[in-house]
Design a protein around this nucleic acid. Structure first.
Length: 895
RNA sequence: GGGCGAUUAGCUCAGCUGGUUAGAGCGCUUGCUCGACAAGCAAGAGGUCGUUGGUUCGAGUCCAAUACCGCCCACCA
């Protein structure tokens, strides 16, 4: 067994091994534990249509960060995984597969055989998706994995359906719905995408039945004219008032239809007269209802014309349109054509134009269900992050129409309605009835249709916890805490979960909805199969590791906004992992002797703050301590990206760049007791940082953790360790100030060195003039200058007179540093530097003094702010004075 | 037609309730193989925060208008 980390960071060496070890030890399993508070996230179940894309990777990462963090905080954290049967999407894929491989249609196979193939598909792709989720490091509870069509979910769906039906909230209706002629099914309003297309208005004359001029109407879909049953005009439209009640003739068809008055037509649009086709237009449907008009369908489900279209029967709707318009024109009925942008509805799956049709479908009555869902958002029980999505959520609910839930498909939850073969009586029940309540018949057949896939996903937050049974899990884990999802499925899913949860459970299914954006490609385009610009998360993981991918996805994002997938960001995340890896290697190296055994450390049983800590020890502990508070606060507010940013800075800029460099001299020195303290601080610091980083980069942190010395009561895994908490005992403001002064001095010397091109290996002398409390800071901290700025000798002086002749200088707050450089002196460079500094300080003094001379600033701004401004002014004035003093000396040297 | 987001360094983006000199990554310049790390170290350059007004002692941050880009919704005569 290796005792230290490998020389280079290679995530492939350990990511799979670690995940396996977590899983074997059931580290993700969450139990009902009444001593703990529950934290619950149900995973948005990926469709079993294919494989995970970058959007899933982001979605997963966000949820995993939250879950791991809460678990470390001591919650019984359940992240419940699963997949979605995705009725229509999967059916399309399976049909395609069968067609390709066997040359058969689903009808050739028959329902039963087709479903077998679909289940085979589910096993193959469901399994693939689960592997991908594991690769990402998701800490979900696999013991509780669910599928939207498993037995329990099916039971929940049937139960829910029956309950709503019995309450009158589900009904079967002969109504106008969105029909996709290609998918061969009805669709809900949410499944129709709107697109503006270039089209035309054709103006046709409908001659009056009594031989008069008749009326001209515009239409963008002339092929629906065969279904016209009336012409409507607005009752106040004076142009047509005397025509209301009269009849016109449907051109070429010869059928007489009435002119009616209705509020629907807009006198400003078209000719103000509208042809009414209740079977093929939702508005016309309603006009038809109001006026008791006949419903004449002229288009078949496959978008060909039916017998009503006469000689056009059998033609495709668009072929018919062309021929029909030609014929009307030839006959002189065409008045004019107008180019127009026509808003068109398309199927969200196949992007073919939707045809509104009348048919028998099942609906959920939305009005009553929507009310409580609106209420929970308004009263704050349900919070959207960011909150602007609440408006979108509310707008949709407030405008909602009844939800068409039946689909003419095979793959899905079959509608639990049965019809008596003898009398046709319908019974809604969990199982096929034995006898008909009406005629006593004993033969039934089940409704052929299946349910909208979203009908089952709407129940996901409670069906997965055992509903309709009253399980312990349901009682404990429901309602869930946060739902993480993309903004693209708010309507499909979030809204429906809320009203369904409220209906069945009486409580909103979650307290927060965290909405994230899309992952786009480097050019900002949506990743899509047709563009071929998708990036496979698995390939990225293979190359850079899951931790780098996760960290990259989280860096620099804000809730609800899209992000771009940039390779340089990914590399940066990987480099960060490598940095941590090496810093950890350094730490472990210094903990161990040549044999790899841990050397003795100071006993920190009474708290690390009780040890003989040096200033830099207190500084790093204090810095980490503040970061703990900040990062926790960020996570509390769902600011995951800011939290990630802070832990990055803490590890790289504070720990690696400064602390490690500051303590090297001690570690390589010979004060054994001090070394023990130093090791102790190193381990403590590293461990705390690993814990803070763990939710973001679970693999590397767990791997490093396994190499560190553990306390007796340590958890088996880092992932089971407790989240660090802020401690007042670890707050060292004095040491922070001291170290900041030392660091400024180091930077100043390095700057001079760079300015004159002095090799880093060249040892320099420094003369320091320090006053105020900085005098003490520099006295205590000057050894750092020696160690990491390569200063071999330091002379403290207490007056300007003692400044040597040939020097470069740096002025800081209460500290002046002079570096004698005899052969290398570059006064010209220093003069430039001083002049630049002078200009900067003059600007600062002017700005600060200006502020302070403003009467209303001094009287109105908080005292704290004013005092800070005063201190600033004093500091800048002092520094400026010193620069001005120094300038003529340097100027003289330049000459 | 309605609504929303974005506009900050060459590029991609952070910037939470208004208060030090507006930050990061990448890129760029210069110099470094000194016992964790060249996937690195050090020192730098680079921004009048889209525009115009307003509120305020104080605005990248709040308000209004405007421009450009993008997105969502809407019953398609």
């Amino acid at each position: 067994m290796e005792k230290n980390l490998a020389k280079t960071y290679n995530p492939k060496d350990f990511e799979d091994r670690i995940y396996q070890s977590w899983e074997e030890n059931k580290a993700f399993h969450a139990e009902v534990d009444r001593d703990k508070k529950p934290f619950t996230i149900v995973m948005p179940p990926p469709n079993i249509t294919g494989q995970l894309h970058m959007g899933h990777a982001l979605d997963q990462t966000l949820q995993d960060v939250l879950t791991r963090w809460k678990r470390m905080q001591g919650y019984s954290a359940l992240w419940l995984p699963g997949t979605d049967h995705a009725s229509i999407a999967t059916e399309v894929k399976v049909v395609e597969k069968i067609r390709k491989e066997e040359g058969k249609s689903k009808e050739d196979l028959g329902r039963e055989e087709f479903l077998k193939r679909a289940w085979d598909w589910k096993r193959e792709f469901g399994g693939r998706i689960n592997k991908q989720i594991r690769k990402l490091g998701s800490s979900c509870d696999w013991d509780r994995e669910r599928f939207t069509m498993d037995e329990g979910c099916n039971k929940a769906v049937v139960e829910h359906f029956i309950r709503l039906y019995n309450k009158g909230l589900i009904y079967k209706g002969h109504r106008i719905i969105n029909w996709c002629p290609v998918c061969g099914t009805s669709l809900s309003d949410a499944e129709v995408e709107h697109e503006d297309k270039n089209g035309k208005y054709w103006y046709f004359r409908y001659p009056a039945a009594d031989g008069g001029e008749g009326i001209v109407v515009a239409t963008s879909r002339p092929e629906t004219m065969f279904g016209d049953v009336a012409i409507a005009v607005h009752p106040s439209d004076e142009r047509y008032q005397d025509m209301v009640g009269k009849k016109v003739i449907l051109p070429l068809v010869g059928r007489e239809i009435p002119i009616i008055a209705d509020s629907y037509p807009d006198p400003e649009k078209g000719t103000g007269a509208v042809k009414i086709t209740p079977s093929h237009d939702p508005n016309d449907f309603e006009v038809g209802q109001r006026h008791n008009l006949e419903q004449l369908s002229c288009i078949n489900p496959d978008a060909t014309m039916n017998e009503l279209a006469g000689k056009y029967q059998g033609m495709d709707r668009y072929e018919c349109r062309k021929a029909w318009v030609n014929d009307l024109e030839a006959a002189g009925y065409l008045v004019k054509i107008e180019e127009k942008v026509i808003p068109t509805g398309e199927c969200y799956r196949c992007h073919n134009v939707i045809e509104p049709m009348i048919s028998d479908q099942w609906f959920v009555a939305m009005e009553e269900l929507a009310k409580p869902a609106i209420e929970v958002a308004k009263n704050g029980t349900l919070t959207h992050v960011p909150d602007r999505f609440e408006k979108i959520y509310l707008n949709w609910l407030e405008d909602i129409r009844d939800w068409c839930i039946s689909r003419q498909l095979w793959w899905g939850h079959r509608i639990p309605a049965y019809y008596c073969d003898d009398c046709g009586e319908m019974v809604v029940a969990a199982e096929m009835p034995k006898t008909c309540p009406k005629c006593g018949g004993t033969h039934f057949h089940q409704d052929e249709d299946v349910l909208d896939t979203w009908f089952s996903s709407a129940l996901w937050p409670f069906s997965t916890l055992g509903w309709p049974e009253k399980t312990e899990e349901l009682d404990y884990f429901y309602p869930t805490d946060v739902l993480v999802t993309g903004y693209d499925i708010i309507f499909f899913w979030v809204v429906r979960m809320v009203f369904s949860g409220l209906e069945e459970m009486g409580e909103s299914p979650f307290k927060y909805v965290y909405v994230h954006g899309l992952v786009r490609d480097a050019e900002g385009r949506k990743m899509s199969k047709s563009l071929g610009n998708g990036i496979d998360p698995l390939e990225i993981i293979d190359q850079y590791g899951a931790d780098a991918l996760r960290f990259m996805l989280l860096s620099g994002i804000t809730a609800g906004n899209d992000m771009r997938f940039k390779m340089d960001k990914l590399e940066s995340a990987r480099n960060f992992a490598n940095k941590l890896w090496n810093a950890s290697r350094f730490t472990i190296m210094n903990l161990q002797d040549e044999e790899g055994n841990f050397r003795p450390m100071a006993d920190a049983a009474d708290g690390i703050e009780t040890l003989a800590l040096k200033d830099e020890d207190k500084w790093i502990l204090s810095t980490i301590n503040s970061a703990v508070a900040e990062i926790t606060a960020n996570l509390d507010k769902f600011e995951l990206s800011l939290a990630a940013q802070k832990i990055y800075e803490l590890i790289w800029n504070e720990f690696c760049d400064w602390y490690i460099e500051l303590v090297k001299a001690r570690l390589y020195g010979d004060d054994e007791e001090d070394k023990k303290v130093c090791r102790c601080v190193l381990v403590k610091a590293l461990k705390d940082m690993l814990k803070l980083l763990h939710p973001f980069m679970p693999f590397i942190t767990e791997e490093i953790w396994s190499f560190l010395p553990k306390e007796e009561n340590a958890a088996q895994f880092l992932m089971k360790e407790s989240w660090p908490v802020y401690s007042e005992a670890l707050r060292f403001p004095e040491e922070e100030a001291k170290l900041n002064t030392a660091m400024d001095a180091i930077r100043a010397v390095r700057n001079i060195r760079a300015e004159v091109d002095a090799a880093p290996s060249r040892k320099l002398h420094a003369v320091i003039l320090a006053t105020g409390k900085e005098a003490g800071y520099m006295a205590d901290g000057c050894h750092f200058l020696k160690n990491i700025a390569n200063i071999s000798e330091i002379t403290f002086i207490d007056s300007k007179d003692q400044v040597p002749d040939e020097v470069m200088s740096a002025v800081m707050n209460n500290v002046e540093i002079y570096v004698p450089l005899d052969d290398l002196l570059d006064y010209k460079a220093e003069l430039e530097r001083l002049q630049k500094e002078k200009a900067r300080l003059e600007g600062e003094v002017k700005r600060t003094a200006g502020k302070l001379s403003n009467e209303s600033f001094v009287s109105k701004a908080p005292e704290k702010v004013v005092n800070a401004e005063r201190e600033k002014l004093a500091k800048y004035e002092d520094m400026l004075a010193k620069i001005i003093e120094r300038l003529p000396i340097v100027e003289a040297k330049v000459k």
